[in-house]
Amino acid sequence: MKLRLLLCMAMSLLAQDQKVLVITADASDYVLAAGGTIAGMAASGATVWLVRVTNDDKDSWDLPPEETARRTREESERAARILGIGKVVSLGYRAGELGGVSPTELRDRLMFYVRSFKPGVMFIPNPYAEYVEVLDRYYTGQAAEEARRAASLANFQPPFASVGLETHLTPELYYYAQPFDPRRREAESTATFAPQPKALDIAPMLAKKIQAAQALKTVNHALAMRIQQRLQETGRRLPLLDRVDDDAVGKLVEINVRKLAEIGAQGTGYSAAEEFHYAGVEYQIPAKYR
């Protein structure tokens, strides 16, 4: 009982001065999978940082990689501002090439931000979500999960401590992914010490989420063009994309975000939701001791 009281006090202290660290492989993934929840936390006073691992230099239509990277950087900062994120760090790894990057190097770069920012909450790509097409998300998720743990142990990167980056354990962890995995709702084997599926209501933040997703103009335009081209090559057309202009692309993004929120809400009673695997208090202390 005493322990439970202490935990509650600790949690409410956390909420007053909550710090949220979001790690994403690319500009759009965290917005589409977790943008509503993050915006909600920012709106209730949390300080949010975003670490974007790649430079998104591949995802465009008719633009060279350098120009793609420059535009996407600006647009990702704009999207982050809309969600209420205070600071965006872009690590600048080339998109689609994390499979050739040392996982330890990536882990240590992410650990740097865990130790310097000392978040109470982390959002990371779920490396266990299957059938995710963009494997940068998988590599980033793996490195981020390790970074959270390594940040709490003094024997990882001793030089960090010598410049004041002391160990830090992030108490709450959200694993996010867009709904590709057909078995994402299945509970993990045990309810304790394993992250469990969790859905959160994002209805009040849905408009913000749509706006943030729409800010990613370069990747959205490329997506619309690829859909249009595929349909055209196979003798079909989508009337919405007869003219791929800002309005049409914006509408396409809105349809996408609304549908993702509807998929997230299925079976939850919410009208719009995001689904996570979540490691919180249950992850640290079994229910019978609380």
Binding site: I227, L231, R236, R237, L238, I255, N256, K259, I263
Partner: peptide, 13 residues
């Protein structure tokens, strides 16, 4: 594109 698949398949002509 889980958020767009339905829209594309039901609106494509």
């Amino acid at each position: 594109l889980p958020g767009l698949k339905n829209y594309i398949t039901s609106n494509t002509v």
